[in-house]
Amino acid sequence: MIAEDNHRNGDLLEPRRKTISSPYIHRLQRRHFLLFDILPILGTACAFAFLAVRPFGVTEFALLFSMWLVTGLGVTVGYHRLFTHRTFKAVPWVAGLLAIFGSMAGQGGVVSWVALHRRHHEYSDREGDPHSPNLSGGGLLGSLRGLVHSHFLWMRRHEYPNVVHYAPDLVKDRGLVRIARLYYYWVGLGLLIPTVIGGLVSLSWTGAVSGLLWGGLVRILVLEHIVWAINSFLHMFGTRRYASRENSHNGGIFALVTLGESWHNNHHAFPESPSFGLDWYRLDPGFWLIKLLEIFGLASDLKMPSAPRIAAKRISGNTEPVGNAA
C-alpha cells in the first residue's frame, strides 16, 4: 500500500507493466506497515494498560462499535463492491463518502486497494496473487507459513500493481483521485473524531485519550484483522457452495462481524454481485446498506446474477436450495 499520488510516477505510466517494484515503493510499503499494521498493536496494548486510569465504559464501546461499522462499511461497500467490482452505481457524493470512510480504515488508499484486489482476483491462489496462503509449500509448516504470509506479513514488501493497468477507471476519476491523495489525512480524521468525541462527552483529557485508543487504534486493529482473515483463513478453511477456480470458502458464522465479506466463495464465484450472501437468509449487512441506498435513489444498477446462472455454478451434491437475491 502506498500513497496514491505515486500514480504519477513515470514507471506507473507504462500500461503494459502489471506490477512495479522499486526501493522507493518498498520504503513506502514498510512505512505503511509500521504505521497502520504495527502501531495499532501497540495502541491496543496501551488501551488495556490505560484501563487502570479510565475503565472501559459506554462511551468507549460506542466509539469502538460506531467507528468500526462506518469504516468497515466504507471498505466492503465502497472499496470492494463499488470501486473494485463495480457491482452497483452510486451518486457522486455517496461514492465520495464511501471512499473517505474506507480510507479511515487505514488499509491503503482507494486506488491502491482496488488495484491490489483486482490483481488478487486475476491470479487468486496462483503465482502473482499478492496474499495467497496456498503458495508456501505443503505440509503443516507450509500451511502455517502461508497463513502468516497472507494474513499479515505480505504487506511489508510486495510488488505494487500498476494502477494504470488495474484501475484505469479510477485514475480517470478526478474527484476520487483527489480523495485518494488525501489518504493519510483521512486516516488522521478517523483518529481525531473519536478523540474529540471522547473528550467532549467526558470533559476530560482521559476521555480524549480513551477515545483515541478505543475508537481509533483498537478499532483499526479489529477491522484489519477481520479483513485479513478473509484473505488468509477463508482461502484454506470453510465451505464451498459454488465452483470457482481458486480455493475460496464461505464462513457463514462470521457473516455479521465481517459485514457479509465471509461469504467469500460466493463472492469469487460471482464477483459482479453486490450481494455476497446471494440469498435473503444469508446475512450480508453490506448488501443491506446498498439496498437501503437504492430505496432512497442513491444507488442503482445492482448487477444481480440470475437464478439459472447461480444454479449452474452450484457444486454437484450440494443440496442447499438455490435462490436469487434480486
Results as ranks from 00 to 15, higher is better:
residue 1 M to E: 12
residue 2 I to F: 10
residue 6 N to S: 08
residue 10 G to T: 12
residue 10 G to M: 11
residue 11 D to P: 00
residue 11 D to M: 13
residue 13 L to R: 15
residue 14 E to I: 15
residue 19 T to F: 09
residue 19 T to V: 15
residue 24 Y to T: 10
residue 24 Y to D: 12
residue 37 D to P: 00
residue 39 L to F: 15
residue 39 L to S: 07
residue 39 L to Q: 03
residue 39 L to T: 14
residue 40 P to M: 10
residue 42 L to K: 05
residue 48 F to G: 09
residue 48 F to S: 09
residue 50 F to N: 05
residue 50 F to R: 07
residue 51 L to I: 08
residue 59 T to L: 10
residue 59 T to W: 02
residue 64 L to S: 06
residue 67 M to Q: 12
residue 68 W to E: 09
residue 72 G to Q: 06
residue 72 G to N: 06
residue 74 G to V: 09
residue 75 V to D: 01
residue 79 Y to S: 09
residue 83 F to R: 00
residue 85 H to C: 08
residue 85 H to R: 07
residue 86 R to G: 00
residue 92 P to Y: 11
residue 94 V to H: 03
residue 103 S to L: 10
residue 104 M to P: 00
residue 105 A to G: 03
residue 107 Q to G: 06
residue 108 G to K: 03
residue 113 W to D: 04
residue 115 A to Y: 04
residue 115 A to D: 01
residue 115 A to C: 06
residue 115 A to M: 08
residue 118 R to T: 05
residue 118 R to Y: 03
residue 119 R to L: 14
residue 126 R to S: 11
residue 127 E to Y: 12
residue 128 G to H: 08
residue 131 H to P: 04
residue 132 S to H: 00
residue 134 N to M: 08
residue 135 L to N: 10
residue 137 G to R: 07
residue 145 R to M: 02
residue 148 V to G: 11
residue 149 H to P: 00
residue 162 N to D: 07
residue 164 V to G: 12
residue 164 V to K: 13
residue 168 P to L: 13
residue 169 D to H: 15
residue 169 D to C: 06
residue 170 L to V: 03
residue 171 V to A: 13
residue 173 D to Y: 06
residue 177 V to G: 00
residue 189 L to Y: 05
residue 192 L to W: 02
residue 196 V to R: 05
residue 198 G to Q: 04
residue 198 G to R: 08
residue 202 S to D: 13
residue 203 L to T: 11
residue 204 S to D: 11
residue 205 W to D: 00
residue 206 T to G: 01
residue 207 G to Y: 01
residue 208 A to F: 04
residue 210 S to Q: 02
residue 218 V to H: 05
residue 218 V to L: 13
residue 228 W to C: 04
residue 229 A to E: 06
residue 230 I to T: 09
residue 232 S to R: 11
residue 238 G to V: 10
residue 239 T to M: 10
residue 246 E to P: 00
residue 248 S to D: 04
residue 249 H to C: 14
residue 250 N to L: 06
residue 250 N to C: 05
residue 250 N to Q: 10
residue 252 G to N: 09
residue 255 A to G: 06
residue 262 S to A: 14
residue 263 W to I: 02
residue 264 H to M: 12
residue 267 H to D: 09
residue 269 A to F: 02
residue 276 F to P: 01
residue 279 D to M: 14
residue 279 D to F: 07
residue 279 D to I: 08
residue 283 L to P: 00
residue 284 D to N: 07
residue 291 K to T: 11
residue 292 L to R: 12
residue 292 L to Y: 00
residue 295 I to R: 15
residue 295 I to H: 10
residue 296 F to N: 02
residue 301 D to I: 01
residue 304 M to W: 09
residue 306 S to K: 14
residue 306 S to Q: 08
residue 306 S to I: 09
residue 307 A to E: 13
residue 309 R to K: 14
residue 315 I to W: 02
residue 316 S to T: 14
residue 317 G to I: 03
residue 318 N to L: 04
residue 319 T to W: 11
residue 324 N to C: 14
residue 325 A to K: 07
